[in-house]
């Protein structure tokens, strides 16, 4: 009976996507940009990213067109703004991995993590407990290649994957363990 109750509560939790308070802290992100061909392009992108108020510092790997973004603790991170800045520079996000510090956070498929008024919806993960620094890959449109997005769209029935929104939530990001 106890097992049944636990299973039922997990199922309901999954179905209704109830948010969980976060035992996590977003510390940094690894940004992969596509379309960069010269150091002037990379530099322009870095200059655009530097205007974001929540970014503390940026490390660059020009050779691989990737950026390490370190976030300020006191200002909420707006992940969509990272994408806009890359697009303002004339390029596109090929991948974004955000790094959280977790404290005993139990996750599974369709688990919702609430963090800084945003929801992070876990996809394609096995039930597990996260501890320490963990990297999550954003799976929303514009954060992965169009090809992968179309493939993943077929894998989920969740309408929030298409819209990025839920009732009473202005933004749901879809993530998987990187």
């Amino acid at each position: 009976m106890k097992t049944f109750c636990v299973a039922l509560s997990f199922a309901l939790w999954g179905v209704f996507c109830l948010p969980q308070a976060a035992n996590a802290q977003l510390v940094s992100a690894n940004l992969q940009v596509s379309g960069l061909t010269c150091s002037m392009c990379s530099f322009a992108t870095q200059k655009q990213l530097q205007t974001l108020p929540f970014i503390d510092s940026i490390g660059t790997d020009i050779e691989h067109s990737s950026y390490m973004l370190y976030f300020k603790k006191e200002i909420p991170v707006e992940i969509d703004q990272i994408k806009s800045k890359v697009e303002d520079a004339g390029f596109a996000v090929a991948g974004l991995k955000i790094s959280y510090n977790f404290v005993n956070e139990k996750v599974e498929n369709d688990f919702h993590l609430e963090y800084q008024q945003k929801l992070y919806h876990f996809m394609s993960v096995k039930p597990q407990t996260l501890n320490g620094p963990v990297s999550l890959r954003i799976l929303d449109k514009g954060f992965i290649t169009d090809k992968e997005y179309r493939k993943r769209q077929k894998e989920t029935l969740m309408p929030c994957y298409k819209t990025g929104k839920m009732p009473d939530v202005d933004r749901v990001y879809h993530v998987t363990l990187a």
């Binding site: 596509s34 379309g35 390029f91 290649t145």
Partner: peptide, 12 residues
Amino acid sequence: YRFLSVDDVHRH
């Protein structure tokens, strides 16, 4: 006016 942009990792 740039009206179309299709970007992939090593091509656009």
